[in-house]
């Protein structure tokens, strides 16, 4: 991301008075590699409001993935706190964190991370298995979200029989199936050609319009340009 580029940072004013759904306060992350200590985050404050569509951009090594993982409660900060729905998550047990990841946050990964040799439907059912959703509802819920992402006719296909775009749609359906408030996507279009990538971006934009709070780590400047809120990280700090 070159310096001096102009971004419209004020287009999110509709939500500016709400309570943040997700907030990072003074986040630092130090990786202790023995003799060398790598400071991936150096005190980041970030607020995500309900209904936000936020892109996090930055060069590789800027700390954007680390920030994403910490905000998604997949990782813990060395210092600072992540506040979800107004609650500090610092003292959460690993079981509580697992429950939050299951119910409150949907993850979409660059490399899809679907279970191999497993049907589309079963991949989407996976988060339901760790929720308290009755088994009788699993198939219906998974089918519904797969229809929502346009894969209603691919329920029984194995993950290796799908195209890249379809795989990412399955991954998005999986992120949606427990109806979380927040979707975290780490370079969701990074492994896709630009046309397919655009359709995935459009899907995420549509989901945002339906009320989901979406945070995307991306390299895609076009996407970053049109999103209402953009956070640029450089060397572990938010620069814009």
């Amino acid at each position: 991301m070159s310096k001096g580029e102009a971004f419209d940072m004020d287009s999110n004013s509709a939500n500016s008075t709400s309570t943040p759904v997700l907030e990072g306060i003074g986040l630092t992350k130090v990786y202790d590699m023995g003799e060398v200590k790598i400071r991936a985050l150096k005190g980041v404050d970030i607020q995500i409001l309900p209904g936000d569509f936020t892109t996090i951009v930055g060069k590789s090594g800027s700390g954007k993935s680390t920030l994403m993982h910490i905000m998604g409660l997949l990782d813990t900060p060395t210092e600072g706190q992540v506040v979800l729905h107004g609650k500090d998550t610092t003292q959460y047990s690993s079981a509580e964190l697992a429950r939050v990841r299951n119910k409150e946050i949907g993850f979409v990964f660059q490399s899809f991370n679907l279970l191999a040799r497993t049907s589309t439907l079963d991949n989407v059912i996976l988060p339901l298995k760790y929720s308290n959703t009755p088994k009788a509802q699993w198939e219906k819920k998974a089918t519904d979200v797969l229809k929502r992402v346009g894969l209603g006719d691919r329920l029984q296909n194995k993950s290796n029989e799908l195209s890249g775009g379809q795989k990412q749609r399955v991954a998005i359906a999986r992120a949606l199936v427990n109806d979380p408030a927040i979707i975290l996507a780490d370079e969701p279009t990074g492994n896709l050609d630009s046309k397919t990538g655009e359709s995935i971006e459009q899907l995420l934009i549509d989901l945002n319009k339906e009320g989901k709070t979406i945070i995307i780590v991306t390299h895609d400047e076009d996407l970053a340009r049109i999103t209402p809120k953009k956070v640029t990280l450089h060397d572990g700090l938010i620069v814009s």
Binding site: S94, F107, L126
Partner: peptide, 16 residues
């Protein structure tokens, strides 16, 4: 190991 990571990200607890 990736599958374990994924399952954890999707809400699997240590006991799971």
């Amino acid at each position: 190991i990736r599958e374990i990571g994924l399952r954890k990200a999707l809400g699997a607890t240590r006991i799971d």
